[in-house]
Computed example of a mutant assay.
Amino acid sequence: MGDYVDLPGVRTWFESEGSGEPLVLLHGGFCTNDTWGAQRADLASAYQVLLPERRAHGHTPDVAGPLSYQDMADDMVAFVEKVVGGPAHLVGWSDGGVVALLMAIARPDLVRRVVAIGANFRPSSECFVEPAMLDAMTPEGPDLAFFREMYEAVSPDGPSHWPVVAARMIDMWRTQPTLTTEDLTRVAAPLLLIVGDDDMMTLEHTTALYRAVPGAQLAVVPGASHLVPLEKPDLVDRLILDHLAQDGVDTMMPVRRAPAAGAPDGGET
């Protein structure tokens, strides 16, 4: 069951299940909480799982003006403050991963651990394997049919608002996010990046993100695409749960995580 919470930016729909430490699931662009179907039960067996639907997504209405990752991150910060009331783990998929990174940078006091799946830190022209894919996307076209059906089924703005939201989303992907590798050094929460080996983002871009965040971990899932949580749900759930429960990284032959000169054993660079 779900309910609304009134946030400064937008009246936001969310669902909740399970008990334990709070874990916020941040869905991808154009998506609803239905896309977390393969993860909810496993994660709710160990955590209190909270699933907000961001502005212009699912049951949450659109807001006048262009869409931005920063506005959505601000909404989710307000959500954690009001609904959770303290720090939470974040698991974000695609656009949700971008939002999680922005939250970790802006409000480290509210973020425990982060898992970002298929996330990017630069606009589509700089990170997509096929940047021209956006040129073929139209609100009524086949590429967005799956997302259009999800939107029309539950949006409080009604089916007629879909073309507006679709255009705003595509514009956002063309121009955002605009994080730098220096910005990413401010992510203090332990971060796990998960990508398919045939993801929308280039592996080079993902590697740059991985290298920029201090202490980040990287999982490249073989035989998987940008939809890796749906394609390899058992593996993705295990990776998420292992990361959230992890207390430090202890490997036998560390290189990137080797102690700095003069640091005590177990320290990280």
Rank of each mutant, 00 (worst) to 15 (best):
V84F: 14
G85Y: 13
G86T: 09
G86D: 07
P87F: 13
A88R: 00
H89L: 09
H89S: 08
L90N: 03
V91H: 13
V91R: 06
G92E: 09
G92K: 02
W93S: 09
S94E: 06
S94P: 07
S94Q: 11
S94K: 03
S94W: 05
D95L: 11
G96F: 05
G97I: 12
G97W: 05
V98E: 01
V99Q: 04
V99L: 06
L101V: 13
L101C: 06
L102I: 11
L102A: 04
L102M: 10
M103F: 04
I105Q: 07
I105T: 03
A106Q: 11
A106T: 12
A106G: 12
A106E: 14
R107T: 04
R107M: 07
D109S: 13
D109L: 15
D109T: 08
L110C: 11
L110I: 14
L110S: 03
V111N: 04
V111F: 09
V111I: 15
R112W: 01
R113F: 10
R113P: 01
R113C: 06
R113D: 07
V114C: 09
V114M: 10
V114N: 01
V115E: 05
I117C: 04
I117E: 01
G118Y: 00
G118F: 00
A119T: 15
A119L: 08
N120S: 09
N120P: 06
F121D: 01
F121A: 11
F121R: 03
R122S: 11
R122C: 09
R122P: 03
P123L: 14
P123F: 11
S124P: 00
S125T: 14
S125F: 14
E126I: 07
E126T: 05
E126V: 12
C127D: 02
C127G: 01
C127H: 03
C127I: 14
C127F: 08
F128Y: 14
V129G: 01
E130M: 06
